[in-house]
Amino acid sequence: MASHRRDFIKRFGLSAAGIFTIGVTPFLRAWGGTKSTTGAAVATTILTDSPASNFKLSLAQWSLHRRFFGDSLDKGLSFFGKTLMQDPDSLLIGASDPFDFPAISINEFGINCIELVNTFYYSKAKDSAYWDRFKNQCDALGVTVNLIMCDALGNIGDTDDDARRKTVQRHHDWIDIAKQLGASAVRVNAAGQGTMEEVAANVVDGLSQLNAYGLSQGVRVLVENHGGYSSNGQWLAGVMKAVDSVNCGTLPDFGNFCIERSASGCINEYDRYLGMEELMPFAQGVSAKAYEFDSDGNEQFTDFMRAMTIVKAAGYEGYVGIEYEGSQLSEELGIRATRELLEKCFARV
C-alpha cells in the first residue's frame, strides 16, 4: 500500500449502460493492498462529545473497511465492481459482519453514533426486515445512525436525462432506509461527465430531484467533496447555491480535495483549507479524514486544529465523523488516534 491515501485512491461508478469506469462516480473510500494488524484493548468509556465544545463524535464505517471486506479489496478494481453488482455479499470476507457495526462501535470504541456505508449492505437495499433488525440492535445498544454514505448508484450528474433519473431513483432506497433507521441524512456524490459548467448543471438537476424526495421523507441530502469537480470547493459551493435548499447541504471532508489523479497519485489538488472555508457555510456534517500520525499524535497531511478552527468559525455544531484510512496503524489504532486528536482540538477551539 502506498504511504498515504492521496497516492492510491481508485474510484469508479455505474454508467447508464451498467459498465464501471474509473474516475466517474466514486464509491471506494480507499483502496489498499495490505491487511490491518490487530488493534489495542477494547474501549470502555463512551466518548461521544467534549464538555468544552458542542461537537460530538461519530464513527464512519469505512474506517473498518478491511474488517468487513477483508481481502476482497486486493483482487482488483474490475473484480470488485463486477462482483458488487452480481454477488455483493460474497465480498464480505473480513473478520466481522457489517450487521455488527453498531456493537463494534460502542463496545470497542465507546462511540454511540455511526455513519453507515451502503456498499457493505448492497444486497439489503430493499430488505426492510433486515433494517428492522438493525434498528432493534441499535436501540438495544443505545447507538444512533447519523447518516448513510451512498456510493456505486450511478452519476447524479449524468448527461443523459433518463440515466440521471434512474440514478436518483436508486438513491430512494437508501433515503427510505435512512428514515427507517432514524438517520438524519444520506451522503451522495456530485459526479458526471463534461465541462465544469455542464456537470454543475446536471448535478443541480439530479440533486434537486433527489432532494425533493428527501424532503418528502424528512431526510437531508448531503454532498461530500469526493473527487473530480466536487473536490473543487468553489465549484461545489456554487452547486449548493444553485440547489438552494436548507435540506441539501455539504459534508466537508478534511482530506478529499484531489481533483485529478494519475497512476502515480494526485496531480491536481485543491487547497484543503480554502475548500473547507468554502464548503462550511453549507455544512450539515463534517468528516475528519486521517491517514497517518507523527510522534506527537498529529495527522501528517491535515492540520486538524486549523481545520477544526474553520469548522468552529462557520458556526457549525454537531457531529464530526472519524474516518481513518491510513496504513501505518491498524484500523482500530487509527480510529483511536483520530479520536484522541479530535478531542484535543475540541478542547482548544
Rank of each mutant, 00 (worst) to 15 (best):
G39E: 02
D49T: 11
T44K: 15
Q61V: 04
L57I: 14
T48D: 10
S58A: 11
T48F: 01
P51F: 00
T48G: 15
H65L: 08
T44E: 13
W62G: 00
G39C: 05
N54S: 15
N54C: 12
I46A: 09
L47C: 07
A41R: 09
T37M: 08
A60T: 13
S58R: 04
S53C: 01
F55D: 00
L64M: 14
N54K: 11
L47G: 04
T38G: 09
L47Q: 09
G39W: 02
W62N: 03
L64Y: 12
S50A: 04
L64S: 11
A40N: 12
L64W: 13
A52C: 05
D49N: 11
S53E: 04
S50L: 02
S58F: 04
L64R: 08
A41T: 08
S63N: 09
S53R: 02
T48M: 02
A41G: 07
T45G: 05
L57W: 00
V42N: 07
T37I: 09
H65F: 15
T37Y: 12
W62L: 05
T48V: 05
A40M: 12
S58Y: 01
L57G: 00
T48L: 02
T48N: 15
N54L: 05
T38E: 09
K56R: 15
S63E: 04
L59Y: 03
T45A: 14
P51L: 01
G39F: 04
L59P: 01
V42D: 10
T37V: 11
L57E: 00
L59F: 06
L59I: 05
R66L: 14
A43Q: 13
T45Y: 07
Q61E: 15
T48A: 08
Q61L: 09
S63C: 09
A41Y: 08
S53L: 03
S63F: 07
A41W: 08
S53I: 01
V42R: 12
Q61M: 15
H65P: 06
L59W: 03
A52V: 04
F55I: 01
S63Q: 06
D49A: 10
F55R: 00
L47R: 14
S53V: 02
T48C: 06
L47S: 06
I46Q: 11
T37R: 12
